[in-house]
Amino acid sequence: MKVITGTTAECLSVQELSVHYGGVQAVSSIDFTVEPGQSVGIIGANGAGKTSTLKALMGLVPRSNGSIRLGDKDLTRVRARDMVRHGIGYVPEGRHVFPGLTVEKNLLLGAYSRAWDKDTHRQLEEIYTLFPVLKDMRERLAGAMSGGQQQMLAIGRALMTRPRLLVLDEPSMGLSPKLVGNILDVLLRLREEGLSLLLVEQNAKLTFGVTSHCIVMENGQVAMRGTSTQLSHDPRVREVYLGL
């Protein structure tokens, strides 16, 4: 069964994206595109500007420059809260579920911009099919769940927004290897179903496993880019990020 119904992918194109915090440049003029149905990864060390790039894309931090287009729509001036209406779902770093609300409420809030009707509940069931553990815990408070379950919930919540593009910020953070494996399975499944993915990770192996193209960031800039296969065999990437 297909878990993400009624979505058609569109091309995301980001150009000359820059972010400043005070006088410090965190991201300087980054370009990338995510073609429909494609999965793109951004890897780099802590502080390289990966999360800032995503937050700027989402409008959660002010951009000092840059344009963002999804399909034929210009999203450059769209506010963070409206991104979701244009089809961009976001899974924040560190999960950020709503801890004091039940699992089901968390998921339903993913559908905040639509009326909560029969259709919403059908979608809820689809999410439960993808993550059976969430169904078992639907009445539990999200804050009482383990890190891995919270990550599933955060992804589920983002899927409830009916995204055409799913943006994930470090979904492997703080998870045991087994759970990282589960996340990988989920992402691969979403990719198979034709959802576009933009994945920011420190875990280069996970990223190369999920994505077709990657960007390597260093000091707020693109240090390298290419297909994931190319990059995973690039001697420099192997040395620095894979340790081979």
């Binding site: 060390a45 990988l184 192996k205 996970l206 990020y241 894979l242 340790g243 081979l244």
Partner: peptide, 24 residues
Amino acid sequence: DLAELGMDTPEAADQPDRAKEATS
């Protein structure tokens, strides 16, 4: 899952540089 991706082979374990796995 990751090993299947062909980027990691246990034979490489004798290389001291394997430490850099940790940066991932």
